[in-house]
Amino acid sequence: MKIEFVLYASLTQFVSGSVAGKPITLEIPDKATVNHVLHMMAIPSDMALILLINGRSGTKEHELSEGDRLAIFPPIAGG
């Protein structure tokens, strides 16, 4: 299945050629989890990542569906 995948801030360093906020389409196995995608994209899964799936907060165990948008941020804050 296909999902939309987008990285922000310092995470772009892990995926060659990626640009913060510019989504790419990923082909992943059916029932793949966020963890699976992190592994596939060589993003360190031990970081306290902020995960948003279709704009909603998610976990690394979340099972993705066709057409989902997975956005990943490093630990950040402001205000």
């Binding site: 987008v6 941020f73 630990p75 950040i76 804050a77 205000g79």
Partner: peptide, 24 residues
């Protein structure tokens, strides 16, 4: 702490624009 030690220094508070936008 990753935020007070690194995140804020690298991008400033405006690093929130993308995440708040993504979160709707």
């Amino acid at each position: 702490h990753p935020v007070t030690g690194e995140g804020l220094a690298a991008y400033g508070t405006n690093v929130l624009t993308n995440i708040l936008n993504e979160a709707g």
